[in-house]
Computed example of a mutant assay.
Amino acid sequence: MTGKYGLILKNGRVVCPAQGLNGVMDVAFADGKVAAVGANLTTPATEVVDVSGHVVTPGLIDMHTHVYWGATSMSLDPLEMAYLSGVTTMVDAGTAGPGNFLGFRHFVIEPSPVRIIPFLNIAFPGIFAYSKAVMVGECGDIRLLDPKECVRVILENRDMIAGLKVRVGRIAGGNSGIIPLDLTLAAAEETGLPVMSHLDDPPPTRKEVLDRLRPGDILTHCFKPFPNAPIRSDGEIFEEVKLARDRGVYFDIGHGAFSFGIRVARSMLEQGFAPDIISSDVHALNRNGPVFDQMATLSKFYCLGMSLSDVIKASSTTPAAALRRPDLGTLKPGSHGEATIFKIEEGSFEYKDALSETLDGKYRFRCKGLVMKGRYGAAPATAEELPRMFDRRIARCNCC
């Protein structure tokens, strides 16, 4: 692309696994797109931001969030979490179901400056009762699970819905066992979409779930502690876990409040079984710990020994593939004008998992800015600055 750029990010360490890039260079944007990536870009630009000492990546993707803000008890403000998490795409993991999806679409997704890609919950009301005071699993009553309604809503919103979500397990499904997953898979077959399956405590078992998942489906909470952990008591990986990966099932972290174990992660990584996707499952009950945000979740895996390129790949290239969105997760010229800028801080940082076990880390990722639609926005320096940023957003809102 020739002519004047709208924005150049100068002198950052550019990490773009989709293109095999990992080095100091510049990234230019024009007309809301990535225009060029290279050393010493000199074409005049409207804005030049020196990001020396920072990492520049494609706009990161958090594959598991809950952002039906204001309508469900567990959901968070997507713009606030985007700047804390350093993401430009948030995948909502089934907060809305067929009965309330239109509200999610019209009042949250469409006005949002941050891209939100929804998975539709098999349960008609979505995740309707998830709070400290009230906790009712949406799959505990099979009367709420109607594949025909899911198919109808998906066909009416094919431009937006990327897949189906189901929460199976004793906590989310009571005594319903494997039935919610089977109903979800039926709707997925009818619409040609992937399934993201949550798994908490049995029933059903890990094997029952994994044996059913198809190539391109996603197991979230894949490094959860016992019960339904992917490893035996001696640390060895269960055979059905290996077979599912060989079959093309994606393994997604989905950290959450109860679904990530540091011991499990260490064992899996030592055996060469890294997660395909690293996501936070951030929601109202874990945003103040142990999850906090996607930056903290990525930091844990960097401290556990994954390379920077592999960590970024698990929050860009691979989730883009799972979403069937090759236009995302890349800084290829002509792609969406999105980027994440963050700092790798060195020090002594304590991280916790779902069991309150700790990881003493030497590094922490801290988001410093985002590029969306080719425009740069610096992340707020302190939490106290966040409300003022949202006041400005509300003032600009033209959705009502």
Results as ranks from 00 to 15, higher is better:
I231N: 11
L102F: 04
H221I: 08
R212V: 03
L199G: 08
Q294E: 02
H336I: 10
M268E: 00
G6K: 10
K148H: 14
L285M: 06
V311T: 11
L144G: 13
R392D: 15
E346P: 02
M25K: 03
P194S: 11
N228H: 09
M295L: 07
D201L: 10
V15W: 05
D211S: 06
F251P: 13
G374C: 10
Q271K: 14
T89G: 06
D281I: 02
R393P: 02
V291H: 01
I179Q: 01
D391V: 11
A274D: 07
C399I: 10
L60M: 15
L79V: 15
Y83E: 07
P44V: 03
R393A: 13
G337R: 01
G70T: 07
L370T: 02
G6Q: 14
D77H: 11
R263G: 10
D211E: 08
R263T: 09
P290L: 07
M135Y: 15
T65C: 14
F292R: 05
D31N: 04
G20K: 04
F342T: 08
I237Q: 01
C16S: 15
D211F: 03
I262P: 13
I116A: 08
D146V: 05
T89H: 04
D310A: 14
S52C: 04
T317I: 08
M63L: 12
S52H: 07
F29N: 15
S112W: 12
G86K: 03
G126I: 01
R396E: 10
G38V: 07
